[in-house]
Design a protein around this nucleic acid. Structure first.
Lengths: 331, 331
DNA sequence: AACGCTCATGGAAACGATTCCATGACGGAA
DNA sequence: TTCCGTCATGGAATCGTTTCCATGAGCGTT
């Protein structure tokens, strides 16, 4: 592999000059510029990133730590974040924590060792020692989707209250009064925000305030199915169900089918937080509040780069959109 | 941030000694070992990756270039590959090419600049100049899922022929004679292999060899829908449809619903290459050949590490499994 | 004609680690 | 007791860049 020394030798200049040309310093003559660039092209020179990082004390690498890249939300977010980062001259290093604090810490160690310039973090749970260390080292950090208590970093996430309001408006338009709500764990800010917004808004949208209609799972299909069974076993018969995320909706639908039969279940309208493309193909089709994951990813990267450049960045709630798949609906 | 010099100073030894301790060289006394480790712990020392890479001439970083991380196949593959890499002490750098050769080249440049130790490549199309350069530089490379003409690198991918055989066996068990097959582009080895295997095997499984039942799309929903419409407009009335990947199946189902109505469409059994979880919730449910994306990712990483360690690696076809979601089926 | 300024350049230091080499301590064998 | 070998250690070179500093050329001004 050619080094800058080879380039300089071939161009007949000193390495300092070659470096200045290649990094676009204005302190260069047209003559050396052309000769250095020609030499670099001829040798297929590609700068040695680690060496550059060593000297410059920055790596132009951002780290993105998510709980599980396999979830559509995160894969869309990661995709958009990578595009944005690359467009700004940064490389995005992606890692999974697998909902496991130990693994998250291992990743943070690896990030620290790579000397990333900034971190986009979708927090699992509370703060860990590694995270403390990074905070103490003043590494620029932004949070995605969930807050962490006592961590003062800008947060980029879904506008949960706004999304719930969209779902409530739709339920009202569809004339539902008896609506089952299956929430998520209160421990997640996401779960709590959606739950609170629903409770706060239901009455104004003509929805029954009977708490027998409400239960919560763990944001996973199995837990949600159990919650839905509990609701049904209380004897209430909702005409619509609102699932607080996509897995929750999945579990709720399974439970309804199990308890009421496929035919009866398909007459209960379903609305979900988190849209997935296959909601169009279920029976009944599921209307949904759509997270703008790409916008969150892009906003996160932009905020992080502002921080890195020494500026400030403000938290941002990204608006959701609503996909109406009901019989009379638009889609 | 603490450097190894700080650690050495605090431990009262020379940097060389500190380095030997920290990198586990046997040439160290118990005394200096304990003092260096204590000093490192007290200072929260984390080695500077770029500096280490510079001197060692390796980075312990692998690059993974996929066309689109948002596809479930790649996100599962990437997830497994990252786990495997991390378990072996490597970091995985993930990038998207977005089906765009220019972007792929930009990524390869970035990888080259980072001096990755090896590349896992899911090829888009033909070879590009950057790829040539990397091959010429003897960078260890493995291919995922698709071959590239004239590139001699081990290939880790789905056993397409085996998967088609599983689908054919299922079609036979279900007693289907008139089966529509919607294939993918011949340009992709994936598409060609599945198509060929189907043509070769259908007769032996009691399936009509009427080519009016066969058409091909572009592996995307819209193209597949058009292909399915062409089939139906030829007047044939299949009792089952076989889609060559998940998007293809999606498009075919849409086309059937459009042409025949929801009710008639739901009586046509569907089998797909590429399983997705929501195939359980469509009407009719879709039985599917399941790619073992995680196994492919793991095998790819293992093969690549073998190459990096100077050994050899052999191409591997990863077996598929079959998910039977038909009425009488197991699932 | 002399002076001063700008500016491109060469050379060298620096970044933080690893690794080579020489040295000295120590222990065992004769 | 002397000698040799082993082995931990300190110090220095090295990896490929960037950046600082000093130098000298060239040019315009007085």
């Amino acid at each position: 592999m050619a080094t800058i020394k080879d380039v300089a030798a071939r161009a007949g200049v000193a390495v300092g000059t070659a470096s200045r040309v290649l990094s676009g310093s204005p302190q260069t003559s047209a003559d050396s510029r052309s000769r250095v660039l020609a030499a670099a092209r001829e040798l297929g020179y590609i700068a040695h990133g680690p060496a550059r990082s060593l000297r410059r004390a920055r790596t132009d690498v951002l780290g993105l730590l998510v709980s599980d890249i396999r979830s559509p939300f995160f894969s869309e977010l990661a995709h958009a974040a990578e595009q944005e980062a690359r467009a700004r001259g940064y490389t995005l290093l992606l890692a999974n924590a697998n909902e496991d604090a130990e693994q998250a810490d291992a990743v943070l160690d690896a990030f620290a060792s790579q000397r990333i310039d900034g971190l986009l973090l979708s927090p699992q749970g509370p703060r860990t020692p590694r995270l403390e260390a990074l905070l103490a080292a003043k590494l620029p950090i932004v949070l995605l989707n969930r807050a962490i208590e006592g961590v003062d970093a800008p947060l980029y996430g879904t506008d949960n209250a706004g999304g719930v309001a969209q779902a409530l408006a739709w339920l009202q338009r569809r004339g539902h009064r008896d609506v089952a709500f299956i929430g998520g764990p209160e421990g997640f800010s996401t779960g709590a925000e959606r739950h609170d917004a629903y409770l706060a808004g239901r009455e104004a949208h003509g929805i029954s305030t009977d708490d027998a209609l409400i239960d919560a799972g763990d944001f996973l299909a199995d837990g949600a199915a159990e919650a839905m069974l509990r609701v049904l076993d209380r004897g209430v018969r909702p005409t619509a169900v609102f699932g607080a995320n996509n897995q929750t909706t999945l579990g709720a639908m399974r439970a309804m089918r199990e308890r009421l039969g496929a035919e009866a279940a398909s007459r209960i309208e379903v609305v979900s937080f988190d849209d997935v493309e296959w909601f169009a193909f279920t029976s009944p089709p599921v209307s949904a509040v759509r997270n703008d994951a790409p916008a969150i990813g892009r906003a996160g990267v932009r905020g992080l780069l502002d921080l890195i450049d020494g500026g400030t960045a403000a938290s941002q709630r990204i608006a959701t959109s609503f996909v109406d798949r009901s019989e009379g609906g638009r889609a």
